[in-house]
Simulated assay, not measured.
Amino acid sequence: MITLFRRIRQKLIDSGSLTKYLLYATGEILLVVIGILIALQINNWNEQQKQNERERLLLINLRNDFQTRYSELKEINTARGEAIEVALFVNEMIAGQVAILPEDEMDRLLATFINYFGFNEQFKMLDVLFNTGLINEISNEELKQLLLLWPQQMEEMLEEQRDLIRLYEQTLGPLYYKYLSMRSLSESFEFRDYQIQRGAPITLTKDYEGLLNDRMFENYLADAQTLLHINIIDGNILIQSAERIIELLEEQIESL
């Protein structure tokens, strides 16, 4: 192709026609410019494809993480609701409206409260997004704003979660050690079907009546119900937010 252009150029020079030569030279320059523009366009397209693929992989990882968080939040919120129901039933026993249950059933009920209902606050994909600036590569503005809002929403729930843990450690834990067998409670723990293996025979004497008559325990139940109720409200906000984030992530992945 270059040889052909060279021959045409030489013929025009030999012909002595300046006008024809200038027209040809102009056309040749235009061809070169067009070739450069096409090459740039192809390069830009390739870069955009790479960018889209990076964003797509990022969104897939985010979606997987949020699906895990969504399932965990729903499971924990259900358990919190069940714990409130148990607390109300135990309050009826404290008030003498319901008789104390057999030992195995009491252990099963009281084991409910050794659950912190803890939500895992470690979210590595979000940390990567925020710490590396990859959040700016997300093109959907609503999705970006929801992701930026998520840590604040989660912190509101975690505040009551931490208060519940402190309440257990400072109030319920000492009461359980005083009146019950922690090994018996652990073996009766049903959350997530952990199936804690039963050990050697339990020799500790259990004093359910003493626990129910201890005013610290009744106060614990009242405080725990309040914190669990607030946790459920905050958890539902997170669940709704996670649902929308997952929906937007699915849409964005499909569009890339």
Rank of each mutant, 00 (worst) to 15 (best):
L158N: 11
F191V: 12
F113V: 01
A111L: 04
L167F: 03
P151Y: 04
E105W: 05
L110F: 02
K178W: 02
F119W: 08
Y179I: 00
F119Q: 05
L129I: 06
Y176G: 00
S181M: 03
L167A: 01
L180Q: 02
L110P: 02
G133F: 06
F189Y: 11
L126D: 08
I114Q: 06
R166G: 06
Y168V: 00
R162W: 04
P151T: 04
L180G: 01
S184A: 10
S184D: 02
L126N: 10
R192P: 09
W150I: 05
V128A: 13
L164Y: 11
L146N: 06
L149T: 13
R166M: 08
K144G: 04
I114W: 00
Y168C: 02
E142Y: 05
D127M: 09
L143N: 03
L185H: 06
E187G: 04
M125R: 11
R183E: 14
F189N: 03
L126M: 14
R162Q: 10
M157R: 12
K124G: 15
N115R: 10
R108D: 08
L175N: 02
D107M: 12
Q145F: 09
R183L: 12
M182I: 10
S139D: 12
D127R: 14
M154H: 12
S181A: 09
F130N: 04
L134E: 15
F189I: 07
D104I: 09
F130D: 04
L110E: 02
L158P: 06
Q153T: 12
F189S: 03
L175D: 01
L164M: 07
I135E: 09
S139G: 11
R183N: 15
L134N: 14
Q152T: 15
L143S: 00
L148K: 12
R166H: 11
L109H: 09
E103Q: 11
L134Y: 14
E160N: 12
D127A: 14
I165M: 05
Q161Y: 04
D127V: 10
F191E: 12
S184I: 00
Q152G: 14
L185K: 01
M106A: 07
E160W: 08
R183G: 13
D107G: 07
L134T: 13
E103W: 05
L149R: 13
S184V: 03
Y177A: 03
F130A: 05
E187H: 08
Q152Y: 15
E169W: 00
F130W: 05
S139L: 11
F123I: 14
L109N: 06
G133P: 07
E155H: 12
S188Y: 06
E121Q: 14
I138F: 04
F119T: 05
S139F: 07
L172I: 01
Y177C: 04
L109W: 04
E155C: 09
F189C: 03
E159Y: 15
N136C: 06
D127Q: 13
L134S: 15
Q152W: 13
E159S: 14
S186P: 06
L134D: 15
D104V: 05
L158D: 11
Y168K: 00
T171Y: 02
L134K: 13
Q161M: 06
F130M: 07
S188Q: 07
E156S: 14
E190D: 13
E160K: 12
F113P: 01
W150E: 07
I138R: 01
T112C: 11
F191G: 11
G118P: 00
Q153L: 14
G118H: 13
L185C: 07
